[in-house]
Every structure is written in structure tokens, then in C-alpha cells.
Design a protein around this nucleic acid. Structure first.
Lengths: 148, 148
DNA sequence: CCTGAAATACTTCAAAA
DNA sequence: TTTTGAAGTATTTCAGG
């Protein structure tokens, strides 16, 4: 499943994780590679799926979602289709991890207000017992993995 | 704290959340705005902090981190400095949310193996009692907020 | 916010090492 | 695989409206 990556690949990954909108020429400069070689490397990383995408990250509070919560969901049985449907519809659910342990799902949910969060929790409560924690703060800037 | 955003701003945010590496001209085409107006809008979104950054997202398994875990940390007292230091050093900790509730912190941790995860947990256990759930799968593609 | 023009930068390709 | 250099294209920026 893993892909062989050399120093240059990792340098490229590091730069693009930090600043995804630089040009391929600028990227080449930073990793000491010619523009054409850089282009080829990046294309390779993209087609092999090492790089899955490039995304702008927005400040949730500033776009109107001042409330962020982590929700753990105990989901008995294995009729997961209805939950999948909810995930597709409710775009306030930003992330959903299926995990081992008693709480089968861990969700990250953005809400415009506590009232909004309450409504979302009501929807989720239909699927199983939930545990909700409101997020005070994100204590780390965005980060990706480094070379192991 | 929130910023006033109109339809065009939201269209820009939507496009850049999906595909951060498109040019400003291409972005302008997609949101029906001239290149110069688009540039000005994006600059505004960046300087007001609405857009916090642009990041490549990598496939953790493909870069050598096949194990992902959610760790909840019960952290008694309020000597948070040592934890901050660990967060800065251990780059395997990709995310750290401080939350309400019994578990003060929720972490997302990437590991190269279960042995690696075990070592990380030993380090974290020094700070308080932990609850670890290994992630089977991420059930959603990357997503950001939409217009409320 | 648009247009248009000028300057710059970028991407792509072929050839060669 | 990478570099170089050239050609074509696209982008960015800025002034004027």
C-alpha cells in the first residue's frame, strides 16, 4: 500500500502541505529541481494518489460557524446506510471517522450556534447514543505527516 | 468575529476548498468574475483570515502511516506547558482539539505501525489517562463548511 | 467591477547528458 | 531521471473608465 518516496518527493510533499498554491516553478526552486522535473514528480505523486488533493482551509468562526464539536456515536447493529445518507446531506458534519471501540464513529461537526448544534445532535441521536464535546480551541496549526 | 460574505465570496471559497491549485484566472471563470476582481477578492479573504491557508492532503497509508488513531486525553490540573511541548515535538500528532467534558483533549495521531502507536501512547499516558480508538476508515472525503 | 495591454511567469516539449 | 533552452500560452498586474 505504501509508495517509495525519496528525499525530493518528501521535500515536495512538505512544501505543498504548507503552501499548496505555489507554482511548479517556485516549488522547483524550493526543492532544487528544474521546472520540468518538478512537474513530472508532482504529477506522479498525484496519479499514485500520494497527494489526494489541495484544499483551502477556512476559519470556521469567520464564515459563520463559531461552534465546533466532537461527537462520538455508539451505533448498535450494522445498518449503516441511513447514517451514510445523513452524512451526505448534513454538510455541517465535516469529518467522520469509523473507529474501534465502544464509540463506532467520531464526528467533527460545525454549527452556527448552540441551537443549531442542538438540532444536529437530535438528528444524530436517532442513530444511537452520542457523547458531545464542544471545542474550546484548536491547539495546533494545520499539519500533515513528515518523513517517518 | 464573523465576516460578511456574499455569494461571490462563497463561490470562491467553495472552489478553493475543492481545488486549491487553480489559477486566479480559472477561478474567475468559475465564479463569473474578471481576473482582476477575482484577485482582489481572494486577497481580501486571505488578509481578513477567512482563508487561513492552502494545503496538500496526502494519503497517510501511502506515505508510510497506515495506522491512524483518535486519542482522548483526560488531563488533570492545568499545567499545559509540557503537553504543548510534546505537541510541538511529536509530529505524529496531526491534530489536537481542546474540548469541554471529561476528556480535555482529543488528538488525531498517525503511526507507522501498532508498535509505533504503542510508544506514542506511552508518551501521552504520562499526561493523564487516555482512551484510544484506532480508525478503520475515513467515511467522508475532505470537506469544508458551506454557506450557512 | 470591467477592459485591455504590457510584462512577467509558467508549462511543455524535444534533445542531450 | 534530470537539465537545458526555446516556443507557445497563460497569468498577473495596472491604468483608465
Amino acid at each position: 500500500m505504501a509508495v517509495n518516496l525519496d528525499d525530493v518527493d518528501w521535500a515536495i510533499i512538505r512544501e505543498l502541505q504548507r503552501e499548496a498554491r505555489i507554482s511548479l516553478s517556485e516549488l522547483g526552486r524550493r526543492v532544487s529541481l528544474s521546472p520540468s522535473a518538478t512537474t513530472e514528480r508532482v504529477r506522479q505523486l498525484e496519479t499514485t494518489g500520494v497527494i489526494a488533493g489541495y484544499h483551502a482551509v477556512v476559519d470556521l468562526a469567520k464564515v459563520g460557524y463559531p461552534v465546533l464539536a466532537v461527537v462520538r456515536l455508539k451505533y448498535p447493529g450494522n445498518h449503516h446506510q441511513p447514517l451514510r445518507r445523513l452524512l451526505a446531506e448534513r454538510r455541517e458534519i465535516l469529518e467522520c471517522l469509523r473507529t474501534t471501540g465502544d464509540d463506532c464513529y467520531t464526528l467533527k461537526v460545525a454549527a452556527t450556534s448552540m441551537e443549531h448544534l442542538e438540532k444536529l445532535m437530535d438528528e444524530l441521536a436517532g442513530f444511537g447514543s452520542t457523547t458531545t464535546s464542544v471545542v474550546y480551541s484548536q491547539t495546533l496549526p494545520y499539519r500533515g505527516p513528515e518523513r517517518p
